[in-house]
Design a protein around this nucleic acid. Sequence first.
DNA 1: TTGGGCTTGCAACTCAGTTGCATAGGCATT
DNA 2: AATGCCTATGCAACTGAGTTGCAAGCCCAA
Lengths: 157, 157
Amino acid sequence: MQLSCIGIMVARMCERCNYAEMLEGHGVDTTPLREAVLRSVGDESRPLAAAEIMAAVRSRMSINKVTLYRILDLLVDKGLVKRLLAGDRAFRYGMGETRHHPDHPHFVCSRCRVMECLGPDLLPVGIKKFQTKGKRIIKHVDVRFEGICERCLKAGT
Amino acid sequence: MQLSCIGIMVARMCERCNYAEMLEGHGVDTTPLREAVLRSVGDESRPLAAAEIMAAVRSRMSINKVTLYRILDLLVDKGLVKRLLAGDRAFRYGMGETRHHPDHPHFVCSRCRVMECLGPDLLPVGIKKFQTKGKRIIKHVDVRFEGICERCLKAGT
DNA sequence: TTGGGCTTGCAACTCAGTTGCATAGGCATT
DNA sequence: AATGCCTATGCAACTGAGTTGCAAGCCCAA
Ligand SMILES: [Mn+2]
Ligand SMILES: [Mn+2]
Ligand SMILES: [Zn+2]
Ligand SMILES: [Zn+2]
């Protein structure tokens, strides 16, 4: 089923994800707030700042700022969510790697600071072979493209 | 002349850089503080946080926090210095690209958060070809390796 | 029913950087 | 010399994003 062909289903970005199930699968007890936070991240096509996640969760239920940050810490810690750097002082949060969501680079617009996901095919080759080089241990590689996004380009100067 | 063969010369990381000259060459009037900030960045082999730069400058002269941030903004704006992301909330500052300092990726230790420069040869190939792909304009690509540094490995658990 | 461990909330705090406004020097114009 | 303007610097107060400390509520086990 295509995402573009329907109305009510479009609300969920990833219809293959059962968020409660994902939580339990990673050893995290499900609570309404945890599920709502994970859903807010998973339903978006781009990584969100904490303030955006808070707004999304609050459109459905009430949540405190501290609780949100604690849930995000937990989800990042358990690998369900990935904390990303956009170049400003606010972290972005996107879904962690799974079979459906392979590792991929991101693009950040230096004008509006919106972050977008790029295809995994844009991950430059030759990255894996550095994992063992030198005396340091390399755990992961982060590739971030920066420039001007389509929306800002259209908006002109 | 090799960096490793001498005593007194070792203090300066880059003996090819005349910092006052670099400032003027980028259209920035030289002042003692600007030169000291640029020197503090250029003399280090790794990118520094603002607090570290402040300590380095203050070992030679007096500088206010706001002045430091304004000088860093200016140097970044003029391309003399590059603002880098380490994964915590503090930016790091390293020398901008020149003939002597080509673009290169960085490594950040997720335990101690120290950032190190890696050789330009570790820049994965195939990055340049994405510059024109899609409707967005890509200005630069940032590659960041993360893991455990040599010092933290030696220090054990 | 009592106690311990989670989960959440609220207030206060921290850290890194920013803003507003004042002061001081340099140079040109009168 | 006096005036005005422009730039560089300093000081105090502020901001935004995230953190800490502690209390309250809930669940289940003993
Ligand atoms: Mn992504
Ligand atoms: Mn570097
Ligand atoms: Zn944009
Ligand atoms: Zn380390």
